[in-house]
């Protein structure tokens, strides 16, 4: 069983994510337990831990994609347990950006349409949305690849498309699940730097799951879900146990 116990530093303003007494059990027997965890607004938090320790589950609980067996999650000031499934989806679509482990780009869409996907499923992409997508693409260096489909993009370009998609709605929280999993360390670093830089530009909070310890210096908070510590902690940068 993985356990995350928090050392609370009282946030100056209301936390973006607040998890209390979370217990989540899968039918496979796997359990994730989070006693108390807050993510401060504007913080860059990394979640580390070995494969299967529950990092992805933690992110999915945080984003309201799955509901905990017990406990409460407050996301962007909303108590998720009080929201219907539709309301949780709506909250996610408008205020949370997501980068998935396998990037999850839609192969039949161009890079531009992939970036605009949250807008498209919300009803349609306006001209300002397209301008915003273009701007993000330029900033991340894929401005010339927007018409190409994912099959014709390099892995690095695909990563950038996924990052742009997570930011196109100017979300308050960006949740990333090992977005650099397939990249070499140098490339991983540049992608995460880019993500943090773009998130900072819009003032978004970043929570990123990674198993790459070399990236942790880019974050000001680290949540270690590793079993070695006996209990995981949120610590200041460089102080993870």
């Amino acid at each position: 069983m993985a356990e995350a116990a928090a050392t609370i530093e009282p946030p100056a303003i209301a936390p973006v994510v607040s998890m209390r007494r979370i217990e989540h059990r899968f039918s496979s027997g796997f359990e994730l337990s989070v006693r108390e965890w807050d993510v401060a607004s504007g913080a860059h938090t990394a979640c580390i831990g070995p494969s299967g320790c529950g990092k992805t589950t933690l992110l999915r609980l945080m984003a309201g994609i799955i509901e905990p067996t017990t406990g409460s999650v407050e996301l962007l000031g909303e108590q998720l347990s009080r929201l219907s499934s539709g309301q949780r989806r709506s909250l996610r679509l408008g205020r949370v950006g997501m980068v998935f482990q396998q990037l999850a780009l839609l192969e039949h869409l161009s890079a531009l349409d992939n970036i605009l996907l949250p807008r498209l499923v919300a009803g349609g992409a306006s001209h300002p949305d397209r301008e915003r997508a273009q701007e993000l693409a330029e900033a991340t260096g894929i401005g010339l690849a927007l018409k190409r489909k994912p099959a014709r993009l390099s892995q690095g370009e695909r990563q950038r498309v996924a990052i742009c998609r997570s930011l196109v709605t100017s979300p308050e929280l960006v949740v990333c699940d090992e977005p650099t999993g397939n990249l070499d360390p140098a490339r991983s670093r540049s992608v995460v730097e880019l993500l943090i830089a773009e998130a900072d530009r819009i003032g978004a909070t970043v929570v990123l799951v990674t198993h790459d310890h070399g990236l942790l210096d880019l974050f000001d908070r680290v949540l270690d879900l590793g079993p070695a510590s006996g209990s995981a902690n949120v610590a200041a940068n460089g102080g993870q146990s």
């Binding site: 994609i65 679509l93 408008g94 997501m98 996907l117 919300a122």
Partner: peptide, 10 residues
């Protein structure tokens, strides 16, 4: 599933 995860309605 990706659509649902990013928040698309049912």
């Amino acid at each position: 599933r990706t659509l649902a995860d990013i928040g698309a309605s049912r």
